[in-house]
């Protein structure tokens, strides 16, 4: 049984449907990557799954119940989402921003408890941002900022975590660090993770399951070795390439062909 799935999901903005009649099940306890060309509807799908966008048709089911019937707070305790371009208030410090991830666990009157502090501290340490704690976010580099946002999502401490392009702005080492962190969260705490990635090689290397999207629909899904082939890359991205095994892990590695 999967905790999060969508049935016949149609999502869109104004009059334009973007995602049409889509069925998807998020595998419990796995790390799933969503890949696809720009504007194919990855962020839209994630927003729909996290009930940030109301479906035009179909339903999103969380633990067997339609998310539109659940209270937003109850959903936020189980399902976290890091949006693609979040905005930070002026002058906010790193610790304050990460602390806001505790929102769904606090009530109208009950504010800060030990478990809140511990969750924030763990999130800061896991993302290597503990040293930056008292710095204003505005003064950080793009990559540091990105890690702080990831820390905020981690502080929410949900069983399911959806991340929209968490590796943008990160250098190669930090990209790998972040994906290792996601793997570790998955291994240690059994978290189910869905992450939108643009780097196919990293997606293949670090994720258990790949969902490839084109034009608002899922064109292929499965383990990286089955899904990522030269034909699929051609179909999804319009790129002719050669797929070879990664010399370290043996997972598929995409190498662009000569033009």
């Amino acid at each position: 049984m999967t905790r999060l799935r969508a049935e016949g999901l149609t999502l869109g903005y104004d009059d334009r449907p973007i995602v049409r009649d889509l069925d998807v099940s998020v595998l419990d306890g796995k790390v799933t990557a969503i890949v696809g060309a720009n504007a194919c509807g990855k962020s839209t799908l994630l927003r729909g799954l996290a009930r940030l966008l109301a479906p035009r048709a179909g339903t999103v089911l969380l633990d067997g119940k339609s998310v539109s019937d659940l209270s937003t707070l109850d959903v936020a305790k189980v399902l976290g989402l890091l949006p693609q371009s979040p905005v930070a208030p002026d002058g906010i410090t790193v610790a304050d921003l990460v602390s806001r991830g505790r929102y769904p666990h606090q009530g109208w009157f009950r504010r800060w408890t030990e478990s809140d502090h511990d969750a924030v501290a763990r999130a800061l340490e896991a993302t290597g941002t503990a040293d930056l704690m008292d710095r204003p976010l505005r003064q950080l580099s793009g990559g540091q900022r990105q890690r702080v946002w990831v820390a905020m999502a981690l502080a929410q401490d949900t069983d399911l975590l959806l991340l929209d392009e968490p590796t943008t702005f990160l250098d190669i080492a930090h990209q790998v660090d972040l994906l290792r962190l996601l793997r570790k969260l998955n291994a240690d705490a059994g978290k189910t993770i869905v992450v939108v990635l643009h780097d196919l090689n990293l997606a293949c290397r670090f994720c258990d399951h790949i969902i490839a999207m084109a034009d608002g629909a899922i064109v292929a899904e499965g383990p990286p070795t089955e899904v990522v082939t030269a034909t699929l890359v051609e179909k999804v991205f319009g790129l002719t390439c050669v797929v070879v095994p990664d010399p370290v892990a043996g997972t598929p590695m995409v190498v662009p062909a000569e033009d």
Partner: peptide
């Protein structure tokens, strides 16, 4: 934090 993040936080 913006509408998306606010809604994601519940």
């Amino acid at each position: 934090l913006g509408d998306d993040a606010a809604r994601a936080l519940g």
